[in-house]
Design a protein around this nucleic acid. Structure first.
Lengths: 119, 119
DNA sequence: TGTTTAGTTGCTTAATTAATCAAATAAAAA
DNA sequence: TTTTTATTTGATTAATTAAGCAACTAAACA
């Protein structure tokens, strides 16, 4: 989604009117309207003002909704494990993934264990 | 960290020179230098060009390094693995996680293999 | 319906980035 | 060190956003 729609979506999710947003920051209604409708490309400074008024971080405007949906479909404990995996070094990751692939049926489990034992 | 330093950090992490970055996008060296040194505030269009050249999403420039729970910090290949793990049965998941914990806890890999072999 | 509030659009001026070239500096290599 | 390459800085012009005001439209409501 484009950033314009993202801002509007977040604002409406928070139950705020455009007027409420601009009242908390130094910004004219005309400009805000143009931004939310994609009529202009806002500068980072302007986006920061809006983010502050909406009470979100600037990053909120850029993250991928599809990826967010994916993440939310997994339970919390799995995501904790993912963070742990992500923190492993490359060699360790590789090993973990070879085991996962083996279980998933892409390889023989024995092959994975053999290469693992050889380390 | 400001966006300028973030871009430079990502570029260097990828082992690229500024020249390599600008050679893949329509951008002058002077401008790129000013952006990476925070001498100007780049527009979103310009940031998109740079992100593309660096092979990262625009979100990378905005997420907080301290927040590991930022979804954008996980790359696509890792997400594919997560899906695969999620599809495993409970017993298999348990085994995979024991390996992960073994690595993360700096335990001896052998311990994990022993319990695995015992199944 | 008429009224009020919210939101959009047009217009002009000011401020800032983008593009470009040239020159200076820094870094790397021979 | 000398040479080459990479990066930074200055200066000018073009393009675009920002600010501000006014007018118009849409929506909500008494």
């Amino acid at each position: 989604m484009d950033i314009a729609g993202k801002i509007k979506k977040i604002r409406e999710a928070k139950g705020m009117t455009a007027k409420q947003v601009i009242s908390t920051v130094d910004m004219g209604a005309a400009m805000y309207s143009r931004i939310e409708n994609g009529k202009t490309e806002p500068s980072l400074s302007t986006l920061e003002k809006i983010a502050k008024a909406l009470g979100v971080s600037l990053a909120e405007f850029f993250n991928d909704d599809n990826k967010l949906d994916d993440i939310n479909s997994f339970d919390a404990s799995l995501m904790e494990k993912v963070k742990t995996i992500d923190a492993l070094n490359d060699e360790e990751k590789k090993t973990v993934f070879s085991i996962v692939d083996a279980f998933a049926g892409k390889q023989k489990m024995k092959d994975a264990l053999v290469s693992l034992a050889a380390q």
